[in-house]
Design a protein around this nucleic acid. Structure first.
Lengths: 205, 205, 205, 205
DNA sequence: GATGAATGAGAATTCATTCAT
DNA sequence: GATGAATGAATTCTCATTCAT
């Protein structure tokens, strides 16, 4: 082992993720990334072959926990407890992965054709399958998916609530302001609730 | 009445929505839109001041039902039945609005600064508020949001399942293939289930 | 006679001159002219074949007094008194022609190839010749030209003096603020002074 | 010393000034500049952020002598001799600055809003103030301005005289053809004459 | 006398990418 | 490990102009 491949490489990945998730992949130019790092565009090309390659780098640097989670899930025999544990573990790393999740959710068009994008979507699908177990109906697949998405959505909702421009009169009701920590706890609660609907008969509408 | 302002204008909106939702806002050039319509780029500029203005046109042409739904919701006094009815009505138009919803979900970075984007987000937030009623906790807001998102996500999930490249071995289990109609029914089921969690105490994890 | 060819035509000329002299020929689009008149671009094309044609229209509507002045000058036998009278008459109409003069001075690149531009320059040259009379040296031609330009420049200078952004410390001295009327009087004074230098031997530098 | 920042940068400035002063700022496209240099448009953007920025570059590369002249003038106590010396020094560099002066005189609309344009006008105003000294009347300011303009105008007049299209019959008199050198000498003569009018009582018209 | 709709040509600008040093 | 200089391809947008009605 010879330590990190290079400090700069890691810094590029970090800054790129930050800018991609904040302003979007297409709206972030390599110049912006280079500027923020205090290097030139050409330097980026020393570390990455293309802009798309930086995305690959981001995934490589961040996706390990999810792969581990999937690997773990595949070793287990499906039970409701395993299912709940999947959600808990998925929620556990959420805070660190928040940028990544946002990046993937909000940049689908750019990511659709990228290997990194495919890979990420496959991971999500794999997680969904692990959650609902074998032989599930479409309805159960949807429940499982929504349970996972809950984790992703909580921080998004939190952000909306604290958005300055938000129309306070909208809906006519005041809403509870939550902290980031409360949001994470709530996300896990709700996600568990939802995944426990799996296998239940649907309500009669 | 003087009929449609112009056929071309409406056709631009339709084609733009189609391309924007399929390939993304940034990846769709005005040339592509014009080509598909059999007109020149300059013709687009006769009808819309800027590319962003086309988005505004899309919203103006599509958002009416949602505004009506919000207006209806504001006239009602909140009850669980009203809440369920909101979901049903929201789900009702889903098929026609599928492109619009996808467009908004997958192009946040481009839409964030656009008036049309703000407006759409405000609409969603307003719906969330109408769903959970006054004095809701963050948890209940999250439940309401997830209930709405379920409608948006069902078609997304359906699409994944039928995606050619999908790794069949992923998760090790076969999944039920659903038709578009079944997906819509399932979406409403699950959305109702989730919104009925509103007000319940959270599970002990 | 059937009166003015059309009211709109005259209004186009007036508005165009105003905008051309304020923002420049190239920076003024036909849309701006049309908008300010409350008509469409296409309407302009009913009255004028091209944008350049509007310039021709401006000249046709404004240049008569200068042509008359030239005609008058050609009828006279040159004397210092005739020369002075040329300046006086040229200065007399200055206020009304201010926009036109400014337009021609500040838009040379656009006007260079236009017939209207040629014509205007020829008029100026003709006036210069009338001022210095036959057999003049280059120096005398320059004196005559500067005498004429003085009229053009006075309003320009006045405008600079009253410009808000003008650096008051520049040059370290306060300057006398003049009114428009004073400027016109001064212009004629100085122009006469200068044209009276014609025929004098040059100073030994 | 690290030599010229880049040869290309300087060549861009030179070619741009040439084309801007010959065909006008608006009528000169970046493609023309690039073509004449044998580079691509994008290369221009490597060296200058915008087209307007090239103008800034032109000024930066050419305005030093004028600034020095102003600085020198500010150090002197005003006397008629200082005033005359200002004109002489201004005239001295005229030949090299001819393009620049023409560019500024004939492209006012484009330059009006540019910092470079403001700066240039301020320089001219500053020179005028230095020429007439403290406590001048508007008339004296006008004399000072005309004296400076004489330098600018001489080459313009020369060019008119040698213009092929010039109507030889105009004014009915033949004119003395001058060489470029004679024009410069004449310009300084006449400019001095005019500036010596400063402080004189006006003629009775 | 005028409009609505459209075009063709071209402009400025941006960006990912390359490569010699 | 990195830079300076440059490119090629595209993009959004503007404008004078046309023409059927």
């Amino acid at each position: 082992m010879h330590g990190p491949r290079s400090d700069t490489r890691a810094r590029i990945v970090a800054v790129a993720l930050e800018l991609f998730s904040e302003h979007g992949y297409e709206r972030t130019s390599l110049r912006e990334i280079a500027d923020r790092l205090g290097v030139t565009k050409a330097a980026l090309y020393y570390h990455f072959k293309t802009k798309e390659d930086i995305v690959q780098g981001i995934v490589a640097a961040t996706a390990a926990p999810i792969h581990e989670l999937i690997a773990w899930g595949r070793e287990q025999t499906w039970t409701p407890e395993v299912r709940d544990e999947l959600i808990r573990r998925f929620a556990a790393g959420m805070s660190e992965r928040a940028l990544l999740l946002r990046f993937f959710q909000e940049n689908q068009p750019a990511l659709r054709d990228l290997p990194a994008g495919q890979e990420f979507r496959d991971s999500m699908i794999a997680l969904v399958r692990l959650m609902h177990g074998p032989g599930a109906s479409f309805e159960d697949r949807l429940r499982a998916a929504m349970s996972l998405f809950t984790i992703n959505s909580a921080l998004f909702l939190l952000q909306q609530d604290s958005r300055p421009g938000a129309d306070p009169a909208a809906g006519g009701v005041p809403v509870a302001e939550a902290t980031r920590e409360e949001a994470i706890v709530a996300a896990q609660h709700v996600a568990l609730e939802i995944c426990r609907l799996i296998g239940r008969p649907a309500p009669t509408d």
